[in-house]
Simulated assay, not measured.
Amino acid sequence: MRSLIRRKNTPTTPKADPAPSRWAWRMQRLMLTPGFRLMLRAGVPFCLTLLAGTIYLADDTRRARIVDGVAEARRAIEERPEFMVKLMAIDGAEDKLAADIRAAVPIEFPLSSFDLDLEQVRETIKSLNSVKNASVRIKPGGVLQVIVMPRVPVAIWRTAEGLTLVDEGGAPVGPIASRTERPDLPLIAGEGAARHVPEALILIQATAPIADRVRGLVRMGARRWDVVLDRGQRILLPETDALRALERVIALEGAQEMLTRDVSHVDMRLAQRPTVRMTQEATEAWWNIIQSSGH
């Protein structure tokens, strides 16, 4: 039997599209980008913190309070007892040199080690004429230790300004008022004499047989040496091979006592023709003898 009930035709609802929208898809793809996720995790908090800090530090009073706090904390650390230097100890220097070093580096103790420029202290000490080298360090217990290598004077250099002690390299050590202060050191003079101290010392050593008569060496024309003896005598040495020429004169003195006679100059500048110059008195006496013989 055909059913008399008519079924009502209900409209069919279309199914929703599961695919995301274009903007949603793009956002999902962007969230999958490592760089974008890093920016969200770190960049955004950093920018917010920077913005907040900028706003906070825009006030001058807050900035000054922060600066004062940092300075106070730093000062509290630097002035702790273990960082304080209480005294300076100088090793390798005599009393006068030690006093010169203390005068050149006038440090008021106690002082924080953070306020000490050790390199500057070392350079200041090295700038002293009497100091050849120096090292500076801070020892445990708050001691600023200075180890000094002083210059050792080996000769006296006479200049127009006075007398100066020089070391083996010709560097000035310090002035002296009189030759008698260091009678143990040889005397040199003349332009550029300090630059040839090693050669001068060798020549002085060669004059040992007549050391009691040697008064010093004079650099002539910045080229060669004259040996100055007492009684106004001089030995004129050549520019080259001066030692051998001096040894020849010393040998002649030992054999013939040449320098004990009335000789004013022994000229060794020409090795093939040494020349002996007599004193004025001896020359006049010799000339008188000749004249007398002629009559």
Rank of each mutant, 00 (worst) to 15 (best):
R63H: 10
S264A: 12
N9H: 12
A93H: 00
R7G: 15
T124V: 04
G221C: 03
V121F: 02
D17R: 14
D267Q: 05
K15A: 15
N9S: 13
L203P: 05
Y56R: 09
D184R: 13
W25I: 10
D115K: 12
V105I: 04
P45K: 09
R29A: 15
K132G: 15
L128F: 02
A71E: 13
L187Q: 02
R277L: 15
A52R: 03
I90E: 06
A76W: 06
Q280F: 03
T12P: 08
R37K: 06
A271H: 14
I250F: 02
I107W: 02
L48V: 12
D115S: 11
M27R: 13
R37A: 04
A76K: 14
P18W: 08
R182F: 08
V166N: 09
A255I: 03
A19K: 14
L116E: 03
V67Q: 13
Q272F: 14
L217F: 00
E191V: 15
P209R: 03
R219H: 06
E108R: 08
M220F: 00
T33E: 08
D212L: 08
T275W: 04
M31Q: 08
L270T: 12
G216W: 05
I235H: 09
E119K: 12
L40H: 00
E94I: 01
V197E: 02
Q120W: 04
Q28M: 10
A89M: 06
E82C: 01
I290F: 00
T33L: 09
M149H: 12
I188M: 04
L187T: 03
G69L: 11
I66W: 06
V263T: 08
E123G: 10
K86L: 03
F36Q: 03
L48P: 12
T180A: 11
D230M: 07
R231F: 14
I289V: 05
P274C: 13
R248M: 08
D91M: 05
Q291C: 04
S113G: 15
A271Y: 11
S130Q: 10
V227R: 08
A206W: 01
V143E: 02
E94Y: 01
I66T: 14
G69C: 13
W157R: 13
V70Q: 14
P14Q: 10
I289G: 11
I66E: 14
E94L: 01
V166L: 11
M39V: 05
A24R: 13
R182P: 07
N288V: 01
R22W: 00
Y56K: 05
R213D: 14
S113W: 02
A76H: 11
V67S: 11
E168Y: 08
H265D: 15
L246W: 06
L201G: 05
R37I: 00
H295M: 09
V266Y: 02
L40F: 07
Q256A: 12
L165Q: 06
A104Y: 02
K126G: 04
D95R: 10
L118D: 09
A285M: 04
M39E: 04
R80H: 11
E281Y: 11
V276E: 00
R158H: 08
L163V: 10
P209N: 05
D184M: 07
K15Y: 04
V228D: 05
T49D: 11
E199Q: 13
V152C: 06
A16K: 15
L163Y: 13
R219I: 04
V105Q: 00
D68A: 15
L237M: 09
G92T: 03
G254F: 02
V154C: 04
